[in-house]
Write a protein that binds this DNA or RNA. Structure first.
Lengths: 223, 223
DNA sequence: ACGTATCAGATTGTTCAACAATAGAATATT
DNA sequence: AATATTCTATTGTTGAACAATCTGATACGT
């Protein structure tokens, strides 16, 4: 392994946290194979930190479910299977449906959702799938923020990071977001009109479709 | 600080994890004051572990929201305020309502709920408030397990641990569970009859009442 | 050949001692 | 009194060391 460059090293956080953030990006970008073992020595050397500090990093990422920790064996990149994906979408279903039902007129998150839906439409023209994925994620994050609950948002962020990891581990994650641009736009429109039941059913359709697509892609890759 | 005894030291887990579990128990038991600073040296000495290992412990407990970590300042016992309690109950509302709506006939969690409701009634006769609290918590944990989602259960466990911490920090947490024995029994009965909407509304009533009681006790103590 | 015991090497688990970096308090300065 | 300036205790991080555990290879017996 070559030595890592420090990209934009602005250190308002501790070393452990910034390295954790860097590794997290690498994980989500699919730079590591699912199930791959991360040796303490190698990773510590690669990022130029000590083993002790790296261990804190590993604890951090393990608690975010991006790494798996097996006592006396070491740390491994998570390898989400079918069950994990199903569970992730179950969480999404509960949290996002709860969010839509908790939506109130004029909530700031609604404006953000609208802005992101429009942004998605613009970006989709260029074909920048990577950014489209990011915008899509932000759209759904904003949806959960309708709950005004830091804890629910934190839980959702965790699950979303896991899902991004899955995307990164797939080959053809490119077109995985495109079909949903219109669905998102429709959801926010319906929501702004105040028709909650309709918004919920649209959301359910979205989640079901998305889950199927991810499961199919996963099976194509692994199964 | 005196040195801690090792109670039931069965080490199937790493030292860091077992110490984390011990400190967690102390926190929930209210042994530390809210907002109290935990010095690395002192705590490490008290539990007979090195600073490095203790740092892993702190990371663990911080990720479980039982400790607050301020860079370069140290680690502090969380001091949940009104906003935190409100947020905790918001999470409960979303998760537990979602669980009840996802309930299926004959789900094993239903049987556990019934058993725990009966157990609660028995224990309440003795006046063992501590155990009653534990049983009550287990009842609601079982409810969330209706979702069959490890991730939702994990999220709920976190929030429940926080809530237990709040109870521990209050003076008169004794009678905080008693009024709900009947409500719990009623919820599970209704649920087994398959009347989901009614169960949801009973649950809403439970949560509202409980939240108010906790907020009142919190205000009484701090206010 | 097959399963098992043994052993050596590598990796993790944990500690310790040291030093740099930072925050908070105490002191001095204007 | 308000602001600078030490001083000191604590956190942040490292490197080396050793114990405990796992892995894989070799040797053994059936």
């Amino acid at each position: 392994m070559a030595s890592e460059k420090k990209t934009l090293e602005i250190g308002d956080q501790s070393l452990a946290e910034s390295v954790a953030a860097r590794i997290r990006e690498l994980l989500i970008a699919g730079e590591f194979a699912p199930g791959q073992k991360l040796s303490e020595q190698q990773v510590a050397a690669r990022f130029g930190i000590s083993r002790n500090t790296l261990r804190e990093v590993f604890r951090l990422l393990t608690s975010q479910r991006l790494l798996t920790y097996i006592p006396n064996r070491g740390v491994f990149v998570v390898a989400p299977d079918e069950a994990a994906v199903i569970d992730i979408y179950r969480v999404r279903s509960v949290l996002q449906k709860g969010a839509v039902q908790a939506a109130t007129k004029g909530h700031p998150a609604l404006a953000r959702m609208r802005g992101l839906a429009e942004q998605a439409r613009k970006v989709s023209a260029d074909g920048d799938w990577r950014q489209l994925g990011t915008i899509n994620m932000e759209f759904h994050r904003a949806m959960v923020e309708l709950c005004d609950s830091p804890r629910l948002s934190a839980c959702f962020d965790l699950v979303l990071a896991e899902l991004r990891l899955v995307f990164g581990q797939l080959e053809d994650s490119a077109h995985l977001h495109e079909p949903y641009i219109d669905l998102n736009a429709s959801v926010i429109r319906t929501l702004e009109e105040g028709d909650v039941p309709d918004a919920v059913s649209q959301l359910e359709a979205y989640l079901l479709k998305s889950e199927k697509a991810v499961l199919a892609a996963l099976q194509r890759r692994k199964g």
